[in-house]
Design a protein around this nucleic acid. Structure first.
Lengths: 203, 203
DNA sequence: GTAGACTGCTCTACACTGTAGACTGAGGCC
DNA sequence: GGCCTCAGTCTACAGTGTAGAGCAGTCTAC
């Protein structure tokens, strides 16, 4: 079986996504997916060459849902919309989302999303030679932020456990004791985006 | 066995790191580590409660190597040193490095690194209330950049395959065709850092 | 109308994973 | 001597990805 079937690919990806959402990425096994669509594990290998390819398909599915409706908004609004949509998707699919940072996205969907960002940056007046770099800067931050959030890198570090650990080696922590707890991550994300916009605007 | 032994923990982590460096994260199994230090897999469970804890230990080890010598340099130099050291470590341990983004780093080592960044930002004149947020912004970007680089998210997207895909749905790609290839990631990283410094300086 | 190819799937099997549980043998202490 | 703790082993189990063979149905060509 060299050529892959495509007919049931969406169905399979739906099942995989549902499993990951419900029971985490560790529970996403070929057997689990197969059982969910009522089929033997080996049947999946007619649609995806192996589990890695199935995961790539999952990334593609996420990307598809990321291209926003860019109805004539300003470049800034479009960029913000992309960023918030990304973060929202991370919240909806916390288990799968980190794959976006790992599996490179040269799928057509990925290219399409990046193209929208390129266009926004061009509209913002960013010199052509700088556009790809700024795109990577922005998307790296947005992905990194969203991943950190859903994986607990932020929350674990911000709660009081860190403030209390402000031991002898952490003088700055002690000085900042009153500012270490964060309760509004939306506000933080918004402030970060505002800072990034300041990078983009004058360049 | 409630309390864990610590005597051979460093030795075990060394072995684990070596395996991951040589054969990738997938090859990092309890059995492989055990074999490397000449011991039965189950012997490891006296030192780490399970594989997850071993991975956490690995993250701690990486963090330890990250705290730079901050000899009286300016805040900007210290921040740059941290960023480059992070990126260098990603290049040295590409398989393990992404764990930094996943496993939250509330270990003493992690706190110490963050504290150095806090101090640099304070020295830069960032208002106390903003310091933790800016720290997260910077470290998120730096980690995200390094992870993207070692996992091929950047390189796969930048090479000509993307330019060629500048199909009907990617007009901006076509317009930017001459700027899509990157050969000097050091320069890109440096430029990104310069942009971030512009965020920090005036705040 | 029947032979052959193709499709979509199943069954079996293998090597490998993390880890629970029970065990052994070597000191050290009273 | 009797006992305890420590460090490590051995066995076993349930779960993993996936190679390979095979099987029922449908489509196509002669």
């Amino acid at each position: 079986m060299r050529k892959l079937k495509t007919s049931r690919q969406p169905e399979i990806l739906d099942a995989a996504l549902a499993i990951a959402d419900e029971r985490g990425l560790d529970a996403l096994s070929m057997r689990a997916v197969a059982e969910r669509i009522g089929v033997t594990p080996m049947a999946l290998y007619g649609y995806f060459r192996n589990k890695d390819e199935l995961l790539d398909g999952l990334v593609g599915r996420l990307l598809t849902g990321l291209a926003p409706a860019d109805h004539g908004a300003t470049w800034e609004e479009r960029l913000r919309a992309f960023a918030w949509a990304t973060r929202r998707m991370a919240a909806e699919h916390p288990a799968v989302f980190p794959l976006l940072l790992f599996r490179s996205s040269v799928t057509p969907d990925g290219v399409r999303v990046v193209d929208l960002i390129y266009q926004a940056l061009l509209d913002a007046g960013v010199p052509e030679a700088q556009v790809p770099r700024i795109e990577r800067l922005v998307s790296t931050f947005v992905l990194g932020f969203a991943v950190s959030e859903v994986n607990g890198r932020f929350s674990a570090a911000s709660n009081e456990s860190r403030a209390h650990r402000g031991g002898p080696d952490a003088p700055a922590h002690r000085r900042l004791a009153g500012h270490l707890e964060v309760d509004d991550w939306d506000a933080e994300f918004a402030a970060d985006l505002a800072d990034l916009m300041r990078i983009i605007r004058p360049v």
